[in-house]
Design a protein around this nucleic acid. Structure first.
Length: 486
RNA sequence: GGUCUCGUCGCCUAGUGGCUGGGCAGGGCUCUGCAAAAGCCCCUACAGCGGUUCGAAUCCGCUCGAGACCUCCA
């Protein structure tokens, strides 16, 4: 099946065709590792996860997915600086060497980030590489030299800037984001990693070293320019080095359209003479309980915050994934509960397909329609809500007990494929209560026997004992299950 | 103030000129000593006001309301 995607370059949903026939190359702007991943990060990384899974499973492409790790920027420097209140002993002992301190902080958060990815079901094995910016300083310097040689960069006070005004004489600047030319201030230089679009200005490619900050030696046209890279240059260099330009799809949050991605396009074109990517795809932000997530509103959640609240990471994944990436998503606790119930219903259906007797209805047609509807919804700009709807509609019209011995394996095969993308279910028979202590299992058995012999006071007494041990018994018609109390 | 998006059943999310979308909550039933779980059934909405049309939640206009960006954020 062919995928269509909204392309920020053209502001249209366009059919996707790979640039070469060996593999689809995807670059995702990854995290700046100065803190734990928050909900918004998760949404931003679940989007390319669903994208690459769809490209592989539904479209049948080989995919090369690169997600960078930004381990050098204003914030990582600030938080790792000597005297920083944000220094956490878990990073290790702070040294007198700024570069070593930076590395201690970023490697800590990078480990945590990789762990968080695993927790929400983004597989390390699906990501072909997660390059660190600091491992590509040489490539960035080469790129800056190229840009300088082609006349679009100049040196000022030991820093190197991109000459946007000059670039605009030749190329369209503002391809991803409508830049207000009225506010364009020619020759104004911006040193910070981020800046207001009201002050579109020359952005920094290389920042001159400051006291007590990490730096790398750099020679540009016989000038010694010790310093460190600007924010935008890393993605240009790593995308070029690892995927080659132009590659197929570049993803990131909507906030990155400008200036980050706009500048990436300009740099790469100026330095490499190539377009960056044929598709630029941006995920919308999420809100929490109807409000923008922010530290000041107190609704700012990291993944670990949510796990501490007792949420199941698979419910969080399902909740976030069951939304179209391009729409603002309202994350609520009730929404996670809803997602949890819905997810369990599907899981019950799957278990039921392994249990009991087969029905006699022929659901081949509905199965075919489910396959068609689910995957075509995904192929329409990753429209997951519509895809999931197809699954529930199927379950409604075809209860598990009615599936014939032929339909059951067919359904399981299909749900397995679906799960290769959604990734929140277990396609296997209901697990035995293996992790339940023997003592608890014995008590549960005693209760069942007492109940069978109509000794209800004994049965209730044993149930009480089990409750004290933290276990709940759920009876069905002719058996029971033991659950650990949450 | 500027730019933009959006208002769909109690809540969340689809749809998009005609055919009662899905999930959660809620109600009923089945099962059951009780409880829980599970399953089945029910629950006819599209902010308001005009207009276009044989027909609009879906197109156009206005009004009201909400949110986002413009400031660090994915």
């Amino acid at each position: 099946m062919k995928l269509s995607l909204y392309n920020t370059l053209t502001k249209k949903i366009e059919p996707f065709e790979p640039l070469n026939d060996t593999e689809v190359r995807v670059y995702s702007c990854g995290p700046t590792v100065y803190d734990y991943a928050h909900l918004g990060n998760l949404k931003a990384f679940l989007f390319p996860d669903i994208l690459q899974r769809t490209l592989r499973i539904v479209c049948g492409y080989r995919v090369k997915w690169v997600m960078n790790i930004t381990d050098i920027d204003d914030k990582t420097i600030r938080d790792s600086a000597i005297g920083s209140e944000l220094w956490n002993p878990a990073f290790g002992e702070q040294t007198q060497n700024p570069k070593a301190n930076l590395q201690l902080l970023t490697s800590f958060y990078e480990r945590e980030f990789r762990n968080d990815l695993a927790i929400i079901g983004i597989k390390q094995s699906d990501i072909s590489s997660m390059p660190r910016a600091t491992d590509f300083i040489g490539e960035m310097q080469d790129l800056i030299r190229n840009i300088h040689a082609s006349g679009y960069a100049y040196v000022s006070d030991g820093s190197v800037y991109f000459d946007v005004a000059k670039w605009r004489e030749k190329e369209h600047y503002g391809r991803l984001f409508a830049i207000d030319v009225e506010h364009f201030k020619s020759g104004v230089r911006i040193d910070a990693d981020e800046y207001s679009r009201e002050h579109v200005s020359d952005f920094v490619l290389w920042k001159a070293v400051k006291d007590d900050e990490p730096y790398w030696d750099f020679v540009l046209a016989d000038q010694q320019l010790p310093g460190r890279p600007g924010w935008h240059i890393e993605c240009s260099a790593m995308g070029h080095a690892l995927l080659g330009l132009p590659f197929d799809i570049h993803t990131g949050g909507v906030d990155l359209r400008f200036p980050h991605h706009e500048d990436e396009i300009a740099q790469s074109k100026a330095g490499y003479g190539e377009e960056t990517a044929q598709f630029w795809c941006h995920n919308e932000f999420l809100e929490v309980e109807g409000k923008k997530m922010s530290k000041s509103l107190g609704n700012f959640y990291t993944l670990r915050d949510l796990l501490d609240k007792g949420m199941d990471p698979m419910d969080i994944r399902f909740s976030l994934v069951n939304a179209q990436y391009g729409s603002v998503f309202n994350f609520t606790e009730f929404g996670v509960e809803s997602a949890s119930k819905a997810r369990k219903r599907v899981q019950e259906y799957i278990y039921a397909c392994f249990e009991g007797n087969s029905g006699h209805d022929n659901h081949a047609e509905e199965l075919h329609r489910l396959r068609q509807d689910f995957f075509s919804a995904l192929c329409d700009d990753l429209h997951m809500p519509r895809a999931i709807e197809a699954l529930f509609s199927f379950m409604k019209s075809c209860p598990a007990q009615t599936l014939s011995h032929r339909d059951r394996p067919a359904f399981l095969e299909l749900i397995h494929e679906i799960n290769e993308i959604v990734g929140v279910w277990v396609i296997a028979p209901r697990p035995e209560n293996n992790d339940i202590p023997q003592e608890v299992q014995d008590l549960a058995k005693q209760r069942w026997e007492a109940k069978a012999s109509k000794d209800f006071s004994k049965a209730d007494e044993v149930r009480k004992q089990l409750a004290d041990l933290g276990y709940v018994i759920k009876d069905s018609k002719d058996s029971y299950t033991i659950h650990k109390e949450e």
